[in-house]
Design a protein around this nucleic acid. Structure first.
Lengths: 145, 145
DNA sequence: ATACCTGCAAAGGCTTTGCGGTTCG
DNA sequence: CGAACCGCAAAGCCTTTGCAGGTAT
């Protein structure tokens, strides 16, 4: 996978640009987000990080994802009151969310939505489309709940 | 405004249907949500309710909105880590959100988005489109921030 | 009369923060 | 070396819950 390495290079470059130091914790968090398609919660990232570095604290993971978000290396996504989740894919894309377990996956959508009547003076900067439903594993267990 | 009264009638009917008691607190919360276009937070609803009934507790407002959500009389919406907001408009519609103050307004959108590659086995139940940007009052103060 | 609802206060999650010591550049 | 960063523990939101008394039907 050289795509990963390319992204890690960009990560390092971006950090230097922004005056952020390259620490093992930061690399670990970003790498985990790059490797994951499920948009993990901070807790999940934390558990993953600790497999490599058992001494890392939860607060550090919180601080790291916030820092990375500020420099647009990751995105924060939150749905339905569950805890925040993070996404290393910062390109234009949308999400499909399981209403039961909260897992999120990236999707692409054709065409652009058009607002019929925009509130006056509202400056639109972007949009996101969220599909929701049941993922395969939750669908299986759905009847038995 | 007889539309309001019509909606209040539906509210009463729905409550009876569901075996919910019609209490002043419930009426107040629902009325406030009906009258508001800004999708208030629980805290905001609470402050509004207390103008009429100074003895009402915050816990009651939390319980009330949750109950109303369960019987589909209101909808919970949450964006960007700010606290949850509630919406008495349960018809199909989408939202436009100010990234600065968090205010939400309803909008309508033309056409339906089409997913290019849906993850296998994911059962799609619905979708929502969220536009984000700056509302008029935040846009004014933007340069001075 | 009774099942449901409320106010109060305490507890529960998730997230942030202050501090002193550590590490990167 | 200095600024940025980290681990730890404590504190801060927002939200939920247990209980005893009150209210709608």
């Amino acid at each position: 996978m050289e795509l990963m390495e390319k992204k890690m290079d960009l990560f390092i470059k971006k950090c230097k640009q922004e005056g952020l130091k390259i620490t093992p914790q930061r690399i670990a968090v970003y790498e985990i987000l790059l490797n994951s398609k499920s948009h993990p919660t901070v807790e999940e990232i934390y558990e993953e990080v600790r497999k490599r570095y058992p001494f890392v604290s939860l607060a550090t993971v919180y601080r790291t994802v916030e820092t990375l978000e500020q420099v647009s290396l990751v995105r924060k996504v939150c749905y339905w009151g569950s805890s925040a989740r993070y996404d290393a894919n910062t390109e234009d894309h949308h999400h499909i969310v399981c209403i039961k377990c909260g897992i999120i996956r990236d999707i692409h959508v054709q065409g652009e939505p058009q607002i019929s009547e925009k509130p006056e003076d509202f400056e639109v900067l972007g949009y996101s489309i969220n599909f929701y439903g049941l993922c395969s594993s939750c669908k299986k267990n759905h009847s038995s709940t």
